[in-house]
Each structure stands twice: as C-alpha cells, then as structure tokens.
C-alpha cells in the first residue's frame, strides 16, 4: 500500500511523538511504500481563501509554496495518515493549515452526496484517511471523539472516509495491524 503520513507535530523538541512515528514507519516499511512529511519542515502558507485553486489555476494553489508537495503525496496515496498531538482539544494548527491547502484536490462544483451538498471530485480515486493522535495530559476521550467526528466529515468532503482513529498510547504494532487490516 502507498501510505502518506502527515506529521503535524509542531515542536521538534517533542521527540516522543516523532520517535513513535519513526518506529511506525520502520514497522511499515517492509510491506508498504511510506512517505512521511514532517510539516514543520515544509513551507506551507496559510490558505487566504482566494479560491485561486478553483477559479484561476484549477487544481493548484495560486500561492507557490510547498503545499503542492503535500497535495501530490496525499492524492497519490492509498492511505493518508494524519498524525498530530492534540492541542487545545484538536489537531495542531500546523496540520490544520495543511488540510486547508488540500481543497485544490476537489472541485468547486457542488453535488449531492448522501443527501447533503458536497464538492465534486476532481480525481478518480482518493486515499482512505486515518487519524493518529497523541491525547496528552490536557485532553480527554471526549476531545478524541470530537476530533475524529470532525475529521470524518473532512474525509467525506475529500470523497473518502475515515478508516480508523488510534492513539499513540497504543503499541506501534497495533497501528500497523490496523493498517494491514484495511
């Protein structure tokens, strides 16, 4: 499977999270083709809501930053694993910033999907999404559920679904098993 991992850990100093991802990538590597993007090293500007990606340069952000690399890695994967420590009860601003910049992957046109208005697909196939969260001391199970609920909606708008949510409390092997079971 082609797996793209977006690492939304904003703090290089927070090594436990990155170490966990390191062990995950190592465990996945023999059987899968893994791309890991540490978002704090990727130059992505905040979305300005210009809609250039929909009406000026269709499918591409009009701001020339490295979000194109993120989009390319995401759309060409079978699984997009969003990894982030919870910050104030949600994925980090660093990861959210990159999600905002993935709207060029869909089309501005609106279609009816599951009885709701959603954007039309731009590509033939979209990756499954999955969430890997570090709950941390400031968050509880409710925060995890709220975050998963929002990201399942985001998955729907990315013409896909949220396959699973796991916490970094779980052994790495459990996440690998969840991925192998897809």
């Amino acid at each position: 499977m082609r797996i793209t991992i977006l690492n939304g850990n904003p703090d290089a100093i927070h090594v436990a999270f990155d170490d966990y991802l390191g062990r995950l990538v190592e465990g996945l590597a023999p059987a899968h083709q893994v791309t890991r993007l540490d978002l704090r090293e990727v130059k992505v500007a905040y979305c300005t809501g210009c809609w250039g990606c929909w009406v000026k340069t269709p499918g591409e952000c009009a701001t020339r930053d490295d979000s194109a690399d993120v989009c390319r890695a995401a759309i060409n994967a079978d699984l997009l694993l969003l990894a982030s420590p919870l910050r104030m009860g949600f994925i980090s601003a660093l990861l959210k910033k990159s999600l905002d910049k993935m709207i060029p992957l869909v089309h501005p046109y609106i279609v009816a999907d599951q009885g709701e208005a959603h954007h039309r697909a731009r590509y033939d196939a979209y990756p499954l999404l999955a969430l890997l969260l570090e709950q941390g001391p400031d968050a509880d199970a409710e925060d995890v559920a709220i975050t998963a609920d929002i990201l399942s909606r985001t998955s729907l708008n990315l013409k896909s679904q949220l396959a699973f949510t796991r916490l970094t409390d779980a052994p790495v092997a459990e996440v690998i098993h969840a991925i192998d079971s897809l």
Binding site: R87, M88, F90, A93, K96, D100, I103, I150
Partner: peptide
C-alpha cells in the same frame, strides 16, 4: 468553515 472546522489561522489563535 474551512475543511469542516476552523481555518488554520483560527486554530493557531486558539493555541
């Protein structure tokens, strides 16, 4: 609403 949640700038402010 940006990708079903707050825009990145708002999440940064919340942090």
């Amino acid at each position: 609403l940006y990708t079903d949640a707050m825009p990145g700038i708002v999440k940064a402010f919340i942090e």
